[in-house]
Nucleic acid binder design. Sequence first.
DNA 1: ATACTTGTGGTCATATTTACCATAAGATAA
DNA 2: TTATCTTATGGTAAATATGACCACAAGTAT
Lengths: 239, 239
Amino acid sequence: MLKKFIDKESGREVESSVMNAITIDCVVFGFDKGSLEVLLIEHAEGIRKGEWGLPGGWIKKSESIDGAAHRLLADLTGLDDIYLEQLKAFGSPDRFPLGRVITIGYYALVKREDYNIKAGFTASDAKWYKIADIPNLIYDHNEILEFSLVNLRNRVRQAPIGFNLLPEKFTLFELMKLYEEILAVEMDKSNFRRKFLRMKLLNPLDEKQQDVSHRAAQLYAFDPKIYEKLTKKGFSFEF
Amino acid sequence: MLKKFIDKESGREVESSVMNAITIDCVVFGFDKGSLEVLLIEHAEGIRKGEWGLPGGWIKKSESIDGAAHRLLADLTGLDDIYLEQLKAFGSPDRFPLGRVITIGYYALVKREDYNIKAGFTASDAKWYKIADIPNLIYDHNEILEFSLVNLRNRVRQAPIGFNLLPEKFTLFELMKLYEEILAVEMDKSNFRRKFLRMKLLNPLDEKQQDVSHRAAQLYAFDPKIYEKLTKKGFSFEF
DNA sequence: ATACTTGTGGTCATATTTACCATAAGATAA
DNA sequence: TTATCTTATGGTAAATATGACCACAAGTAT
């Protein structure tokens, strides 16, 4: 019952049982007005035309899988040069209706202000959805999304990656709100401040918030060197 | 320059640019006499006959990737019903000399006492190697091993997974030695005890060590319920 | 009995966390 | 202008956790 392919060049048979189609699917997180959001695209072609799903596509033979993820995201949404990390391979035999397709999930954290999403390639539309408003997605994409959300909640406590969702300059309060939103907890402003400042990860800037109707807060940027160090040696943020 | 395959049944051409061979490679950790070890196999056939590498092989179309990992490990080494977790997909275009092969890495933690390793299938030998004595391995297997070691060091501080390397019943001292070995640090007996017991993860048994030439230590087993809870809500073991 | 080894329980000084409170620094409304 | 509101920021005290170390217990080996 094994299907066989013939290699056109060599003429030799190749057992299809070990040949698999591999795709990439990306869960792109953004943070806007206090809400965690995910970038979804509407498929412009293929068997699921018109339906929403995660941005993704085929891996080419000549590229690394990280490279494929970056290429696909750029093609489909215009996102370029972003924080992207491999999540997990999903390979249930029946996850794709037309045959066995294994997909490698990636998740990305982007600063919303830096990008204008533009649907491209095989995507007819691309939009940010609030986590609470995710529609039914194609294939097992809801499952992949759920997995990446759990992963994000874990990662954000174990590595200083939250900044990738915030603008270059941010206040401690905004950072705290980000953690509160992702982890679905409430925190104490004062304790959060002390805890975070103690690890020297943030550099205070010579700037304050503008155009706010209350006392303007100090702006901070994160320190890439300490970031590097903490990422290597481990980071633990307890609540 | 794209290679094409012909589907024997339908007669249609399939672009080989999206067809990839996918394998599984497993890093199996064990712990014996105070040393962290890895299970390697000697290949009995194929282009790398006689060389050592990680146990692994092709994924079949009809099985999940987790299923493939379990099957391969059972076939090659006799290991069955073990703690196995997906690590990462490795997909550098040139990692495999005969063409593009993507491999999905898994790591496993096994209780050495429970298994007798027996080489099988396409493995002519299977042996435990101490971490410090790993030879040169085929393909990028040294790289995969190194990655999984870093991963293990991180995971062991963030989830209560160390028990999977120990016998059912163990002493606090043995547990500490395990942590010391994996993390390459020295710890204080007394403080380790206090810290670990406080989280109620361990159930003291009505048994003591046997046949030791010193005061016999209390034996413990871990509590699966608390284990479950800690795994979900997060676990942090600082040193 | 003595020495030796590991287990187990403690102390104490120090550091961290938590739950608050108080004041500062603006903006806005009366 | 003054009062009031909101958020920022800095503090305090009690509870908890940590790290270094000690002392005795409970066995084995000589």
